Amino acid sequence: MFKSVFLTLALLVASAVVMPQTAQAGLIITQQFQFEDGTDFGVISIDIDQIDEFGNVLDWQLFELFGFTIGESFLFVADFDPLNLAAGFSFLSFDVNDISGSFAFDGFWESAFGEGFMSIFTTAGDFLDAGIFIMGPATITSVAVAEPAAWLLMLSAGFGLLIRRRQR
């Protein structure tokens, strides 16, 4: 009798300790690149867990311009206010190529001005176009990842059932 009560208590404590919990993989800030009329032509998403010691993010999660996925970076810096994530980026500077190797984009945007400037080149360096752009409102998402604690819970419950079955 005492063993089964002790075993039940032990399983209860073990399952409370190893209950599945979510770990934050990071908050993701996403903003749209827009023409001055509000039409979207690109998107950028960054994980704020990638922040460096100076408060800048030097890599992206998703970066697309004019339907091209950006792959190669010669310069990329995104800055934001950690106390006001909903404001989105406060500064963005980039010099990048798309993954197909067709186009090169360079530009900058600063929230104080409300608009930015971008140039488009071929990867051979031929100028194609340039213009002003704005950034759409920020979207903040949280990515949750389940921890392996769920497996530990199932294993401890399984061992408990095996021990209980042997006692009978």
Score class of each variant (00 low, 15 high):
79 D>M: 08
64 E>M: 08
105 F>I: 02
162 L>F: 12
145 V>L: 11
83 L>A: 12
138 A>H: 03
22 T>E: 14
156 S>E: 07
158 G>M: 04
139 T>G: 07
51 I>H: 04
44 I>C: 05
28 I>Q: 07
66 F>W: 07
100 S>T: 14
132 I>D: 06
29 I>Q: 05
129 D>Q: 11
140 I>H: 06
46 I>Y: 05
162 L>A: 15
74 F>D: 14
103 F>W: 07
16 A>K: 10
43 V>N: 11
152 L>K: 13
116 G>L: 02
121 F>D: 09
29 I>S: 06
80 F>T: 03
94 F>E: 04
123 T>H: 01
135 M>Y: 03
135 M>C: 02
25 A>M: 15
52 D>Q: 07
122 T>G: 04
104 A>S: 15
40 D>Q: 10
120 I>Q: 15
114 G>L: 00
115 E>G: 09
131 G>K: 00
54 F>T: 13
52 D>S: 04
63 F>R: 02
22 T>Y: 13
71 G>I: 04
66 F>S: 10
43 V>F: 03
54 F>E: 15
139 T>D: 13
138 A>K: 06
73 S>Q: 08
109 W>N: 06
59 D>F: 07
99 I>R: 14
14 A>N: 07
124 A>N: 13
6 F>S: 08
10 A>F: 15
21 Q>F: 11
142 S>V: 10
141 T>P: 02
137 P>Y: 00
127 F>K: 06
89 F>K: 05
73 S>V: 08
30 T>Q: 14
108 F>I: 05
112 A>N: 09
42 G>K: 04
49 D>Y: 15
72 E>Q: 11
84 N>G: 05
128 L>A: 02
85 L>K: 01
83 L>G: 14
166 R>M: 04
66 F>E: 14
74 F>N: 14
133 F>D: 01
66 F>P: 02
130 A>I: 04
8 T>E: 08
130 A>F: 09
5 V>H: 09
133 F>K: 03
24 Q>I: 09
163 I>Y: 08
102 S>M: 09
55 G>N: 08
41 F>M: 01
120 I>P: 00
154 M>E: 11
94 F>C: 03
42 G>N: 03
33 F>G: 01
16 A>Y: 10
165 R>I: 01
37 D>A: 07
24 Q>V: 11
33 F>V: 05
61 Q>T: 14
49 D>V: 08
2 F>R: 12
89 F>G: 03
115 E>C: 02
105 F>S: 00
87 A>I: 00
58 L>A: 09
90 S>F: 05
89 F>D: 03
145 V>I: 15
1 M>A: 11
75 L>E: 14
124 A>E: 15
154 M>N: 10
3 K>V: 13
89 F>P: 08
144 A>K: 10
48 I>W: 09
39 T>A: 12
120 I>F: 08
46 I>D: 03
96 V>G: 02
110 E>A: 11
45 S>N: 04
40 D>K: 12
52 D>W: 08
21 Q>L: 09
6 F>D: 08
83 L>E: 15
55 G>P: 11
119 S>I: 04
26 G>W: 03
159 F>T: 12
156 S>T: 15
57 V>K: 07
159 F>V: 15
10 A>P: 00
51 I>A: 06
2 F>P: 05
26 G>F: 01
113 F>Y: 10
65 L>V: 15
